[in-house]
Design a protein around this nucleic acid. Structure first.
Lengths: 232, 232
DNA sequence: TATTCCTATATGTATAGACATAATTAATCT
DNA sequence: AGATTAATTATGTCTATACATATAGGAATA
């Protein structure tokens, strides 16, 4: 061969090209694995791997017996890294600082219980803290931790380590829900973030579960200078 | 075995469980493919597939010769669907309406060119429109389309179909950058979205390229009631 | 006509074997 | 010792083959 042997990458990229350049229009039934294997001079397994990757990426739809076709409405997805505040700040070349504001065991208010699908007024740990980048407030964190699922949190020391950092090491999660929104800073939030009351803020809310049991709800507030960027 | 034959799923899930339940702590060097193959009574290729999936998910780190270890700082990623405004609104059970505000060919201002990495003041198409859900303003779209890469846009009719919908069918993209942030509504935005000037808004910015050539920049403004939700 | 059953077929998965490749470790040379 | 080279080893990939499984579409039936 002139170049390299046909690998699943070569095949994947070539098929991807044909779709991107509309050689195969959306909805088209493309040749079967057997045929493609012959065309590329590869084994069916190799073609299969290429096709599976493209199907996973959402640009192909495969069905047994029916064959493989170019997705009509490719549900394009983008990824974003689940931010870990310390890394996020240090990755920008800034110095990370952390300040614990309050920790207390309390019955979570109705709103919080509802968000966590908890019927009873569960006993929880309420942690409030502030994350700074180069001594400038970066994120205010208001977190509720379910003491029924993570009883160890009661004795954890949050003066040096943020609750997220602690939880990463003590309570793995299997599921999570992320919500992003805009809001207006409350008086409390404003003074902590050194902005004015009513100023727009970028809010991230994160709920995590382990096998259906809610672990924690984090309410994360950023000043409006914050950007959440991701690439496809 | 008690149940079914060991499949790559079985193996993947079992390994995943061992990591989640801390049988194998972060940093641990786990047994090699050969050993796992023997343990599960499967072929090495099958174990390999399981391990590769876990590595792709970021919970394992693999290196030739060195072996496979549990990721120390698992870079967890979440996905979000790249929203297609019509589908997004109809999926909520709302009726979708669209209103074109303005279309004009113009030289993009410096800021826009800079965002698209265009040095010259390229000739572009500036489209402004409004998307409504059940007759309530849902998103204000302010878009610039590069006429050098998508000359067809000049003759496109945006009175019935939004520029995004049109572009999906005419200009596939290979790369995209998404930025999310909070901001305060300008007087213009406020009147269009039926909110007050200065009210917080949720802003999404989307830039797409085809093979390095910038195609379009979309500035999408939502009232602060908007939620962007995603699951892991 | 509508329903049920059957079968052909494309994809899904497993396997043994082979070779490729990267990276660590050991051996060799200066 | 320090640098270069070679051997070793775990993962990466490909192949040929086999069987599993879902299902479209036709055949048989009610």
């Amino acid at each position: 061969m002139t170049g390299r042997r046909a690998s699943f990458r070569t095949i994947r990229d070539e098929l991807s090209r044909r779709i991107a350049e509309r050689v195969w229009l959306p909805g088209t039934l493309i040749p079967g694995e057997e045929a493609l294997a012959e065309e590329f001079g590869a084994a069916r397994a190799t073609v299969n791997r290429a096709l599976q990757e493209l199907a996973r990426a959402g640009i192909l739809e495969r069905k047994r017996r029916a064959g493989t076709r170019v997705a009509l409405h490719p549900v394009r997805e983008a990824r974003f890294v689940i931010p870990r505040i310390r890394q996020e700040i240090e990755a920008r070349g800034s110095e990370y600082q952390y300040r614990l504001l309050s920790v207390e065991e309390a019955n979570a208010p109705e709103v919080i219980c509802a968000r966590l699908s908890l019927l009873t007024k569960s006993n929880m740990l309420h942690v409030r803290c502030l994350h700074l980048a180069d001594r400038v407030p970066y994120q205010f964190e208001d977190r509720w931790i379910n003491l029924n699922t993570v009883p160890d949190a009661r004795t954890a020391d949050f003066t040096l380590m943020g609750p997220n950092e602690w939880l990463v090491g003590h309570a793995p999660f299997s599921n999570a829900e992320f919500t992003f929104m805009a809001g207006a800073a409350s008086a409390d939030e404003a003074s902590l973030l050194q902005i004015r009351e009513g100023d727009p803020v970028f809010i991230g809310e994160r709920i995590t579960w382990m096998k259906g049991e809610p672990i924690t709800l984090a309410h994360l507030v950023h000043p409006s200078s914050h950007r959440m960027v991701t690439h496809l």
